[in-house]
Design a protein around this nucleic acid. Structure first.
Length: 423
RNA sequence: GUGGAUGUAGCUCAAUGGCAGAGCACCGCAUUGUGGAUGCGGUGGUUGCGGGUUCGACUCCCGUCAUCCACCCCA
């Protein structure tokens, strides 16, 4: 045990049961994406480091990127996020594409962070974006996609909420307080910490940023005003559209939501578990300047990203993960040496008929073979002994009901399909 | 990057400087044509790793690695 080479810190091994969960999530993401007409794409896992510089958050670029120099002296990064890649891809074919683009992707990302629960150095993300449409209705469609996804994995509105805010609204409100635009970024950082610091510590931090007591009081008033969204015509339209999507139960206004990445320009949103036990489940927003920033003409865009780690932890904690068995539902035993070939052939014929079948490979005790079938999650076990062979029959045992019967080999494939589809 | 906690069997955990254990899991038998339940028996350990103190270290000290927690940041 102590001699086993350790896995790289912050990475996760996906054993079959873990892979089943990841693939199940992937399939939910795929079906929700496709149900809204989004198309799957992917970018390279390696990008030039420059792509991220000054376009993502400084923390993400300077501290959390895996960066190396390739043999040609090029500074290369393992992608820490997908959005800049998407912007680059759009810019490179800007005139050939039909807008709005509805694109989604699922793949690995790397960030050099200190691993904790729900945060690893290698993780998977679902990214889904709409590009070329600058409207509250576009933002609302993404929120509706998010709500559909939460519903599809079995999370209730009482358990997860998508909190939405608008950066422009917040900037207007700050300016109304007399806080200059140059300070807004720092103030956003302050807003982000409202829930984490005590009132006194928060005030102290605000004072360090050079804010007066009057300004701090004003900021507090803004971020606790649940009706503030009514001042933003854009958010009003947004919530109307969300209601039309039948997604209102999952989506509400959250004046404290700001987000760390620098490229967001308008609507921003994050999903949180209402119990507050986990970190953010996903986050996203509108980024209208990013395509321009990577060298294309300006194109408006909105999207969000969901990591696989937090949502898996949460579904597991809530007991919402479905029963996922990766093994074949049919297990063919080997009665004895003499029947080995016939048993393998039986399995081969069933596979030709379109069934998934695992074969035992030796004439072990049937007890052992049944036990193995049970543990591998098989639903049906087949036995081909001398009696069955003589009568051209097969014994079929349903492991769930415990019922067992003989039937002619010619009827076997059809009967198995009937039994397995019945569940 | 900062601060803190914890590493003992496959898993969950005992052993408070003096023989490394239990439950679950696993293997075998009861049961030579049948899984799950039960009974009995059995396998399994560089106590994360390296060093130090001691007659003697799972236990105390130092270092290191890993995990977890709070910051930071964020999926």
């Amino acid at each position: 045990m102590a001699n086993i080479v350790q896995a790289v810190r912050g990475t996760q091994d996906y054993f079959p049961e873990d892979m089943a969960v990841r693939n199940w999530l992937y399939s939910q993401m795929r079906s929700v994406s496709e149900s809204f007409g989004y198309q799957e794409y992917d970018g390279p896992f390696l990008e030039r480091f420059d792509l991220y510089a000054a376009k993502s958050g400084a923390e993400l670029v300077e501290k959390q990127s895996y960066v190396f120099e390739d043999r040609g002296g090029e500074k290369i990064a393992l992608r820490p996020e997908l959005t800049p890649t998407l912007a680059r891809m759009v810019a490179s074919r800007q005139r050939q594409l039909t807008y709005p683009l509805r694109w989604w992707s699922f793949g690995p990302f790397w960030r050099y962070e200190k691993p904790q629960k729900g945060r690893s150095r290698e993780f998977f993300q679902w990214n889904i974006d709409m590009i070329g449409e600058d409207s509250p209705e576009a933002d609302a469609e993404l929120a509706a996609v998010a709500a559909s996804f939460l519903r599809s994995v079995g999370l209730q509105p009482s358990e997860v909420q998508v909190l939405v805010n608008n950066r422009q609204l917040m900037q207007q409100e700050l300016e109304a307080l007399g806080i200059p635009a140059a300070k807004h970024k720092l103030v956003f950082g302050l807003v982000d910490r409202r829930d984490k610091l005590s009132a006194a510590a928060w005030n102290e931090y605000g004072a360090e940023l050079g804010l007066s007591q009057a300004e701090l009081g004003g900021i507090q008033k803004i971020i606790s005003d649940q009706q503030l969204w009514k001042k933003s015509p854009s958010l009003v339209r947004f919530f109307e559209a969300v209601a039309a999507h039948n997604a209102s139960d999952y989506v509400r206004f959250g004046p404290q939501i700001i987000r760390g990445l620098d490229y967001y320009t308008g609507t921003v949103f994050e999903a949180w578990d209402t119990a507050g036990e986990f970190r953010a489940i996903f986050g996203g927003g509108r980024y209208n300047d990013l395509v321009n920033a990577v060298g294309g003409d300006p194109v408006p865009a909105v999207g969000f990203a969901v990591g696989n780690v937090v949502i898996s932890l949460m579904l597991k904690a809530l007991g919402r993960l479905p029963q996922l068995s990766a093994g074949a539902p049919i297990y063919v035993t080997v009665f004895g040496e003499e029947q080995l070939a016939a048993s393998l052939t039986l399995a081969a014929e069933l596979r030709s008929a379109g069934l998934a079948v695992a074969s035992h490979l030796a004439a072990d005790k049937l007890q052992k073979q049944f036990k193995q079938a049970d543990r591998l999650g098989a639903k049906v076990v087949l036995v081909l002994g001398p009696d069955e062979l003589q009568q051209k029959q097969v014994t079929l045992k349903d492991l769930r009901s415990g019922e067992q019967r003989n039937l002619p080999q010619t009827e076997l494939a059809a009967e198995l399909k009937r039994i397995l589809s019945a569940t």
